[in-house]
Design a binder for these strands. Structure first.
Lengths: 231, 231
DNA sequence: TAGTGTATCTCGACT
DNA sequence: AGTCGAGGTACACTA
């Protein structure tokens, strides 16, 4: 990895064209050829960038460019498209290279997939005596997160979100419309389950006859940990 | 802006929890308190980060931490939430600071707000002999992207998206419900037009009696270029 | 200021 | 390889 702080202007040509006027910026050149152009603000998104795989070529400036202060021209070309990033280097203030090696990578916890697994394992949370039919039950308009059967034998469709918003209720409504056309499943009732459910979503769900279930992720994980420890 | 290359491990706690084991990485500390943790690969997204506004606090390691090689503990706290990034610094290999000033900012060009204009000009694409009634036809629940009349004289409401998803079909359905109550327009049929239409959206559209039209933006732009060249 | 739609989205999982 | 769904999405625009 090479890290450069330089006065530069940048032009991107690809899906769109974009231009950055001359200013002092941080340039990151990664081993895979990708390049990031960062300013001292904004969030993690660079002002401009080239995705890997890419190749960097450096060239001398034309006389015209040299006359306006360009010291070097860096051209970054994507390997799989004709996207191009052109960096006109005026002055380099810092330039260092380090070998970082391969990163061992990020481990995540607490995403929707975890929630789905936990709820499938602890399906009693949607009602004592419930049994799992299957996760990701397929339909023409997409998979239903969890399909279950309650103690009375009725089918239950569960839509799962980390944050329960109106969108999720709409989604579940569409599934219910579809599932209720299937005589082997009908009648199907819906449960909208999330770690947090917004008031508007609760109102809409109530209006549609959909039950809401607020999930306590930490508690569910604790149960999971205890279950795992038995083995 | 401060740029550091260091051996470190990183933990994030917020919307989710994430952990990065000890490795050599690039740390970027921006003036607004935001922090990026980059490896020598991937795209522009950092392995881990803290969004601005945030505050960095540095502390001495506990004895326990010091025994496993931690030289310093950096805690980055978001100002507006309780998200926290904890960086355990083992060894710093590079550490430099530069004042970059305020960036003049990015100018973009050639983005596709033109899609609607292009389809309005090439309204025959929705059916030979069609004529434009108007773009952004106002209704009580918002403007319909394009309202047209087909060769047979029937009204056509067109909902336009770059990527056609179920949401767009729902939106068009609401417009059609409303427009069909207007005796001067009814019967109104719908066309869902997008550069890409997802299979689920197609299913739902078919179910609602809405036609789908996949648009070739490049071809439409070519036609537009040729038209422009005539003048 | 909150809501909405796009993005050079990125990223992973699955077909 | 393409497709689809989710994101600590970010970001611009609008009401």
């Amino acid at each position: 990895m090479r890290v450069v702080i330089a006065d530069c202007s940048v032009d991107y040509r690809g899906r769109l064209t974009a231009h950055l006027p001359l200013a002092r910026r941080l340039l990151i050149l990664k081993a895979d050829g990708s390049v990031l152009v960062h300013s001292d603000g904004g969030s993690y998104k660079p002002l401009n960038w080239m995705s890997p795989p890419a190749r960097l070529a450096t060239a001398e400036p034309t006389q015209e460019q040299a006359e306006v202060g360009v010291a070097s021209v860096w051209t970054v070309s994507a390997a799989k498209s004709d996207d191009q990033l052109r960096i006109l280097i005026h002055e380099i203030h810092e330039d260092l290279s380090h070998d970082l090696g391969v990163d061992p990578g990020l481990t995540k916890d607490g995403v929707e997939a975890d929630l789905q697994r936990l709820l499938a394992e602890q399906i009693d949370l949607v009602g004592a005596g419930s049994t799992l039919i299957r996760r990701e039950y397929p339909t023409a308009i997409g998979p239903v997160d969890i399909l279950a059967r309650d103690a009375a034998g009725a089918t239950v469709a569960i839509e799962l979100k980390r944050r329960g918003d109106i969108d999720g209720v709409e989604q579940l409504t569409r599934y219910l419309d579809l599932l209720n056309r299937d005589p082997r499943l009908a009648p199907v009732r819906g449960i909208f389950a999330a770690q947090q459910i917004k008031p508007q979503a609760k109102v809409l769900a109530a209006d549609r006859g959909i039950a809401c279930l607020t999930l306590d992720y930490d508690a569910m994980r604790d149960v999971d940990d205890k279950d795992s420890r038995l083995f």
